[in-house]
């Protein structure tokens, strides 16, 4: 119906711009998988032919597997903690009249904007003054600070999107807070929970700057890649590894975004 209105009549130049925009947005990233199949140690045109050799090489490398396992461990723990805390915080923010709420929300959301290097450096200084050795735990703490705001931000619209009287109705029908949460709240925000888990996992999995300052002897995958970037002869295998990471990240985030917004937008528009 709205297609026909005067304001929304098609605008051809804008349409072309939009397509170019998307191409420019994606193409740079696509060079990584493209060159990862290139049968040459040099990353340059012309392409030399198709090979899976760089992927095969990855398979046999012990450090890659170690780094992968480190990243997965940190990612899983961080995503679970930040999602659980995100649920709890988002509920408090949307359901209770609490003095100072705005300040607290701003505080929680700060890591979204402030450069990560400042948090990384600050944590590094704190940990070293306290004599805490750098390890995957310290990386996890750093990631938690980055991921918590994303968890809260993903879950907030979910909580805002459903009528608070649902929870009141449950209490009114005799369920205490615990049962109300499991019988009403959780099923209602479930898509948001999955979205938050996927998103925070991906962010932790891909995070570099915190890991850069806080990693001990066990590198995460991005740290491993960073280390390899110094050696030009390692470029092709780094490309192969990067292509795999990109693929997994894109997939997880795509699912998370679909879930995170599913139902919310349909209901409102």
């Amino acid at each position: 119906m709205s297609d026909g209105t005067y304001i929304r009549r098609p605008n051809r130049p804008l349409q072309i711009y939009a397509v170019i925009f998307l191409i420019v947005l994606y193409v740079p990233v696509l060079f990584i998988p493209m060159f990862s199949f290139n049968d040459s140690i040099y990353v340059r045109f012309p392409l030399q032919g198709f090979t899976l050799q760089w992927y095969g090489e990855l398979w046999t490398r012990e450090p890659v597997w170690n780094a992968l396992w480190n990243s997965v461990k940190v990612g899983l723990v961080v995503s679970v903690i930040s999602t659980v805390l995100g649920v709890v915080a988002a509920r408090a923010i949307t359901r209770y009249r609490i003095p100072g709420k705005g300040t607290m929300v701003t505080f929680i959301m700060m890591p979204l904007v402030i450069p990560g290097i400042i948090f990384g450096v600050a944590l590094l200084v704190l940990l070293s003054r306290m004599g805490v050795p750098l390890s995957l735990y310290t990386v996890g703490l750093g990631h938690l600070i980055i991921c918590l705001p994303f968890g809260v931000a993903t879950l907030l619209p979910r909580f805002e999107g459903f009528d608070p009287s649902m929870e009141e109705a449950s209490a009114d029908l005799g369920e205490n807070g615990w049962w109300t949460f499991w019988r009403v709240t959780f099923p209602m925000v479930f898509p948001g929970v999955v979205a938050s888990l996927l998103l925070t996992f991906t962010i932790s999995f891909d995070e570099f700057i915190m890991a850069f300052f806080l990693t001990g002897t066990d590198p995460t995958l991005p740290m491993y890649i960073w280390g390899q970037l110094r050696f030009p002869q390692e470029f092709p295998s780094v490309l192969a590894l990067s292509a795999l990471i990109l693929f997994v990240s894109f997939f997880l985030v795509f699912v998370a975004q679909r879930l995170g917004r599913a139902g919310l937008d349909n209901g409102n528009t």
């Binding site: 990233v29 999995f205 891909d206 570099f208 990471i245 990109l246 894109f250 985030v253």
Partner: peptide, 8 residues
């Protein structure tokens, strides 16, 4: 793309 690895 924003959500995927900044480093990459």
């Amino acid at each position: 793309p924003f959500w995927t690895s900044y480093l990459l």
